[in-house]
């Protein structure tokens, strides 16, 4: 099985706005939780649309996806974990990122992958350095690894850091 894309905080599928139709959009399926019911989704009247209420089991979602035809695009309005799970199923069913748009309800999540101890740790959205649970100081790299499901974290020795970063400011959440 090839490595499939994963949802991350800078993913091109994420949008702060409502669904944007492209020339390839023939139908839109809106996955939405109860919290999203009050939000407006502007879909042109000439485009078919359908709502898929959440929560739903993985099997229900997969079965539904397999019945959808080419030209169907998905707009997912859900909290991070739920949206991430649906995104994974979409990828497993062969969809491309250009066929999916996601509006996250609440906060996005961000992870760093430590290249010293090979574990993943959740970090705040605005930091460029952190300390791993293994003790290593990590510079959060720009590259998100779908395989590791996190940004690659490069260990550095604090005393050799030449960037003038205040290491006491490094923080993270577990």
């Amino acid at each position: 099985m090839p490595q499939l894309p994963k949802l991350y905080d800078q993913s091109p599928v994420l949008t702060e706005d409502t669904f944007q139709c492209t020339g390839a959009t023939k139908k839109v399926v809106v996955f939405l939780t109860k919290e999203a019911l009050s939000l407006t989704v502007n879909i042109p009247t000439k485009i078919l649309s359908e709502e898929f209420p959440l929560p739903a089991s993985k099997e229900e979602i997969r079965y539904f996806l397999q019945s959808q035809r080419i030209g169907t695009h998905f707009f997912i309005m859900a909290p991070w974990d739920e949206a991430s799970e649906i995104f994974d199923i979409c990828m497993e069913e062969g969809m491309s990122e250009s066929e999916i748009q996601i509006h996250i309800l609440g906060a996005k999540r961000r992870f760093v992958y430590c290249m010293k101890c090979y574990t993943r740790k959740e970090i705040a959205s605005d930091i460029s350095h952190t300390q791993c649970n293994c003790g290593a100081h990590l510079e959060v790299g720009p590259y998100f690894s779908s395989l590791r499901q996190g940004y690659i974290g490069y260990p550095f020795h604090p005393s050799t850091n030449s960037k003038g970063v205040d290491l006491h400011a490094c923080s993270g959440t577990n």
Binding site: L65, Q66, S67, Q68, R69, I70, T72, E93, G94, M95, E99
Partner: peptide, 10 residues
């Protein structure tokens, strides 16, 4: 014949 394939078709 391409029109009615399921999503995930290449």
């Amino acid at each position: 014949t391409m029109a009615t394939h399921r999503i995930g078709t290449h």
